Simulated scan of single mutants.
Amino acid sequence: MTLSATFLGTSGAVPTVERNTSALHLRREGDAFLFDAGEGTQRQMMRYGTGFDVDAVFLSHVHGDHVLGLPGLVQTLDFNDRETALDIYTPRGTGDEVRDLVTATGATTSFRLDVHEVSAGETVLERDEYGVEAFHTEHRTRSVGYALVENDRKGRFDREHAEELGVPVGPQFGKLHAGNSVELDDGTVVKPEQVVGNPRPGRTVVYTGDTRPIDATVAAAEDADLLVHDATFSDQDAERARQTAHSTGGEAGRIARRAGVDRLALTHISSRYGGAVGALKADAADEHDGETLLAHDGLTIDIPYQ
């Protein structure tokens, strides 16, 4: 089951030649989502081949560098004759701002736009095999982060042991794997726990948007496969990070370490550093025992099962 993240914009508030403003594309098999949509996001989607089949957009907050790409994207979807509704999730209290933004040109779309206000602690989208949950973040405005959390998978089926117990090859294997006992011709009952291993964890991807390093992120990202965290500043500029309610690379690394995250991707990199961004990654890597990546536009990360 494919799960991959493509970074469409990794700059801070000001774009650079190399980095566009914030946007992350996440694909889980046939489902596709955008987390934030800074100016130019639709062009980045074309450039990096994500396609426009977006099921929903999740906004961490409504600062311009995270939302100004929405009107253009919505217009392009309309030009492409989209028919299915587009769900846009945004922090509670910001729904009217988002509606005003996407309808600013006065045009109407051929598809329905559904804007949902969300609060930290809510499961804002629920599918059969996974959900998207909002969690608290700390920025200079109403803001949330999002975690895509897969359900646990079934344990592995031990076919060899099932055959040893006398279970015939066929439909009864499926019944056992689904959690049902089966009765053999001689009256013996074989229970699922005899041939099915423990449940296997699904995958978790966490996106903070802009935030200070806080305990809520640690809780949301516990044992996550991928944490995408604000790392606007280097540790040398920690005071500036506090003043602007952002995080440093080292602060993001400490959050990842506390949460036991497998991989940490740093994003929302301030334009003040130009190409000299190695210090941010070094700051984070000094704190985090797992893999640390400095995200760049076009980077795609495949997230395998553990």
Score class of each variant (00 low, 15 high):
V277D: 01
T50M: 03
F7L: 14
T94L: 13
A220G: 04
H136A: 14
F233I: 06
V144I: 11
D128A: 15
V102W: 04
H25I: 09
R254K: 12
S181I: 06
A13E: 11
R240D: 08
G69V: 05
T90I: 00
G131Q: 09
A282G: 08
V62T: 15
K154M: 05
D81K: 13
L294E: 04
Y273C: 01
Q172I: 14
H139Q: 10
G187W: 07
D114P: 08
R82G: 06
L68I: 15
E239K: 00
T50A: 02
E160Y: 11
G49V: 03
T204V: 13
L148Y: 03
G64E: 14
Q172K: 13
A104T: 14
R263I: 08
T21V: 15
F173C: 11
G64W: 15
F52A: 02
A256I: 09
E222T: 14
T188D: 08
G51W: 03
T76H: 15
H66E: 10
F111D: 05
P171H: 14
D297E: 11
H139Y: 15
V149P: 01
V17I: 09
A285P: 04
A279K: 05
T50K: 03
R127W: 12
T123S: 00
R263A: 09
Y48D: 03
R212V: 04
F135G: 12
F233Y: 12
Q44H: 14
T21H: 15
R92F: 09
E164I: 12
N198K: 13
G298D: 07
A134K: 05
D262F: 10
V124Y: 00
G250I: 03
Q44N: 12
H25K: 08
A221M: 02
D158Q: 05
T109G: 13
R27T: 05
Y89E: 00
G49D: 06
L86V: 04
V57M: 11
K154V: 05
E287P: 01
A284M: 07
T244I: 02
G290T: 02
T2V: 14
D128C: 11
A56C: 10
L70G: 06
N180K: 14
E183C: 08
G93A: 06
T211Q: 00
D87A: 10
V149F: 01
M1P: 15
D297S: 08
G121A: 06
